[in-house]
Each structure stands twice: as structure tokens, then as C-alpha cells.
Amino acid sequence: MNGEGITDVSGFPETPFEFDDGEGRAIEVREYDGEREALLSMYEEFDPGDRAQGIPPVRGDALERWLDGILEGVNTVAWDGNDAVGHATLVGDEGMDAHELAIFVAQSHQHAGVGSRLIRGVLSLAYDRGVRDVWLSVERWNRAAVRLYNGVGFEKTRREGFEIEMGTRLTV
């Protein structure tokens, strides 16, 4: 299929930053700084219907193990007061330069522009940390997600079974 896209992060907001979401709520996006309990709460409440390709795992040990693994990567969290309402994460693949991206927004804060801010924030932070190649996979019927990723420069690189793979290279 096509090659990966190009994402110029120079226009993206640098964390931490604040914005008013589509519902008028003040949201702050910050780099993850040990607020594990708040993230766990967000994922424990996560609508199972919004899970994608098996993540986040349903509550319990599997959820905690998964969270510990991804918190090793580059992580940004969207906050509404003391509540974590969104989380973007980049995880390096063993033996590969590319990082895998995933983004989650709590049901209460979807369709309000939180995801598009979060993704820009995490890509900008990732660039500062030396990340260049980013990829992700998305269920191919999830058009809203594909549009979001297209909007920040991702291009389809592969269609594999039920998923589409997309990739981009970060530049300034």
C-alpha cells in the first residue's frame, strides 16, 4: 500500500497546555507524572464497547500489567480537575525504531476535541524525546479514528485482516 506520512509537529501545542473542550470544560494536558491511580480509575470505568483490539484489558491484574507496561513509554494525560479523562501513549517495539501509538478518551469527554489535542500533545512531546517513526493499528470500521489519525499526518501503510496499519514520520 502507501508509505508512511509526514507529521510536522512544530504547530502542535507543547505540554503542559490548557484548552476549553467542546462542552466548555477546562481541560489540561500534561505529561504523565506518576498519577497511576487516576489512570486506573479512568480505565476501570471505561466502556467495554469502546475497547479496541483487546485494550484496555478488563479490570484486574491484566489491566494493571498492561498499564505498567505502557507507562514506560511516552505518556500524556488529559485532566478535567482531578479526573483523568484522556490518555495518549507511545510504546517502543523491541528491536524496532518505530513507536506504537494508542489514545483513549473517557466516554464522558468524547466528541469534544480532547482526542485531537491529546494526540498533538503526545506527538510533540515524543519528538522532543527523540521519537521519529510512529505507527498504529486501527479497526478498519472505526472511521472517526482513521480521520483523526489522517488529520495529523498518518497514512495507511498496510491492511491486515480486520485492521488498518498507519504510520508517520515526525519532523519540525
Binding site: Q53, W66, T89, D93, S137, E163
Partner: peptide, 17 residues
């Protein structure tokens, strides 16, 4: 049942599909 990425995402292959 598919491979799992570093992120933990399950990817079902084209044979299974």
C-alpha cells in the same frame, strides 16, 4: 488467535479473517 503488539493490541491475520 492473532499476534499481540507491544501496546497489547490483538492483530488478527488475513488467513483467520
Amino acid at each position: 488467535g492473532g499476534e499481540t503488539s507491544a501496546m497489547g493490541k490483538i492483530q488478527v491475520g488475513r488467513v483467520a479473517e
